[in-house]
Amino acid sequence: MLRNETANEPSLELLGDFGLVCSGHRVHMPIGVQRLLAFLALQSGGIHRGAVAQQMWPDYPCPRAAANLRSALCQGRRASYVPLVDCIGQRLRLSPLVRVDLHTVGVDARKIVDGLDPPSDTEALIDDLTRELLPGWTEEWLELDRERWNQLRVYALEGVAQRMLAAGRYLPALQAAIAAIAIDPIRETAHRIVIEVHLAEGNVASAVRCYQHYCDFLLQELRVNPSPQMTSLLQGLLST
């Protein structure tokens, strides 16, 4: 969900269920228009309308795909009094007046990855980073952007968790690390942070249990052991 949004500024929600909000009201959009707006939101600088038709309707002949695109554009104009798509010659782009939650949250996520301070509302950011990009949509043109989003949010969640741990804010650190694990359960970094949080709180048994669960998971899935960096966190405890 977009934060600090202007009341009259249209906002497009791609994280979680699709949504379009104009003047504070949710606008119903036909599925073809939803797909078009989502597709254009993922393009930087616009894209030729022929490429839009081919990528969105790859199984249709070019004339039929072009007709589908014209229909979606027409439906979009009827469904909203706010112009949502700019047509510049043969190029289409999402109107710059439309705010997109993926872009807004992505800016905050990249700041964290770049070592800058996270937003003050850490809980809201963690919640935003747990949201998938249009879950349930199976369009091929979504796959690469979905993978990019997953990688960015894992790194950002780990960055938030590390910062919260260093600041002694153990609950948000744990929440961020667990959210990162849910996205990529094999990746070790977030598991290490969870163990470090438990140790910092004096919860030795919880730390050992998390370590053992991760060891069992790795052996079952990949037949490998955790890194020496992770093992060293509990080396003295495991040898007793």
Score class of each variant (00 low, 15 high):
Arg3His: 01
Glu5Asp: 11
Thr6Lys: 10
Asn8Met: 10
Glu9Ser: 02
Ser11His: 09
Leu15Ala: 04
Leu15Cys: 09
Leu15Trp: 01
Gly16Ser: 02
Asp17Leu: 06
Gly19Ala: 09
Leu20Ile: 01
Ser23Asp: 14
Pro30Gly: 10
Gly32Phe: 00
Val33Leu: 11
Val33Asp: 01
Arg35Thr: 04
Ala41Met: 06
Leu42Glu: 15
Gln43Glu: 13
Ser44Val: 12
Ser44Arg: 15
His48Cys: 13
Arg49Asp: 15
Met56Ala: 12
Asp59Val: 11
Tyr60Cys: 13
Tyr60Met: 15
Asn68Ser: 15
Ser71Asn: 11
Leu73Phe: 07
Cys74Arg: 14
Gln75Val: 00
Arg77Thr: 10
Val82Pro: 04
Val85Ala: 04
Asp86Thr: 01
Ile88His: 02
Gln90Thr: 09
Arg91Thr: 01
Leu92Gly: 03
Leu92Glu: 03
Leu94Lys: 00
Leu97Met: 09
Arg99Phe: 00
Arg99Asp: 10
Val100Met: 02
Asp101Arg: 00
Asp101Ile: 07
His103Trp: 06
Thr104Leu: 07
Thr104Val: 09
Thr104His: 10
Ala109Gln: 12
Arg110Asn: 07
Asp114Arg: 03
Asp117Glu: 09
Asp121Phe: 07
Ile126His: 12
Ile126Leu: 11
Pro135Asp: 07
Glu140Met: 10
Glu140Cys: 04
Leu142Ala: 11
Glu143Gln: 14
Leu144Ile: 04
Asp145Ser: 11
Arg146Trp: 03
Arg148Gln: 12
Trp149Gly: 07
Asn150Met: 12
Asn150Asp: 14
Gln151Lys: 15
Gln151Gly: 10
Val154Ile: 14
Gly159Arg: 00
Val160Glu: 09
Gln162Phe: 00
Leu171Ala: 15
Leu171Asn: 09
Ala173Asp: 08
Ala173Ser: 15
Ala179Leu: 11
Ala182Phe: 13
Asp184Lys: 13
Asp184Cys: 13
Val194Leu: 03
Val197Glu: 00
Leu199Tyr: 05
Glu201Thr: 01
Glu201Gln: 14
Glu201Asn: 04
Glu201His: 00
Ala207Val: 03
Arg209Glu: 11
Tyr211Pro: 04
Gln212Ile: 01
His213Thr: 08
His213Gly: 03
Asp216Thr: 10
Leu219Gln: 05
Glu221Thr: 07
Pro228Val: 02
Met230Glu: 05
Met230Ala: 07
Leu233Ile: 05
Leu234Asn: 10
Leu238Pro: 07
Leu238Ala: 08
Thr240Arg: 15
